[in-house]
Amino acid sequence: MTQIVFFILSLGTIIGALGTILCKNAYYSAMWMISAFVSLAGLFVMLNAPFVAMLQIIVYAGAIAILILFVMMLMDRRVLNNKQRFNPQYFWGIILGVGLFSDLAVLAFKFRINISNAGKSLTLHGSNTKMVGDVLFKHYLFPFEIIAIILLIALIGAIVLTKKDEEEAR
């Protein structure tokens, strides 16, 4: 039972990811991306991590995908449809992707991953929301704060780079 669910969810993730890069229409790509995110959240639920799963949907499928769709809606759709799907440097992506895939395949072969274990949760049971909070704010408070400051720097950097000076604009 759990195996079937696991395979459905992982198929959903892979098909969603493939659809994102292979679809001609940018809006369909966005739709496939959202479905990939949602199936990934399902995999997190199977790993007994409902907190991470919900954050996956809220942050990625909710906020980020809405922002991406929003940007696409602000563009002219004729421009969007005539865009080339791949830029001239696509072979770097292919090399990286094939390398990563073969790496994972070799690892899976070497360690003899048992398919019958698919979908079984090997992690702790019960609510882990409290545990995530404890770990973040007690053990790893310093790295957590540094990440927050780095994100803030990125935000301010984005604003500074895109904002035109009043004088310059005239």
């Binding site: 949602v38 959240a41 919900m54 949907i57 499928a61």
Partner: peptide
């Protein structure tokens, strides 16, 4: 959190 997630979807 579930409510927020599906409200966003």
């Amino acid at each position: 959190l579930f409510v927020f997630a599906f409200l966003g979807l």
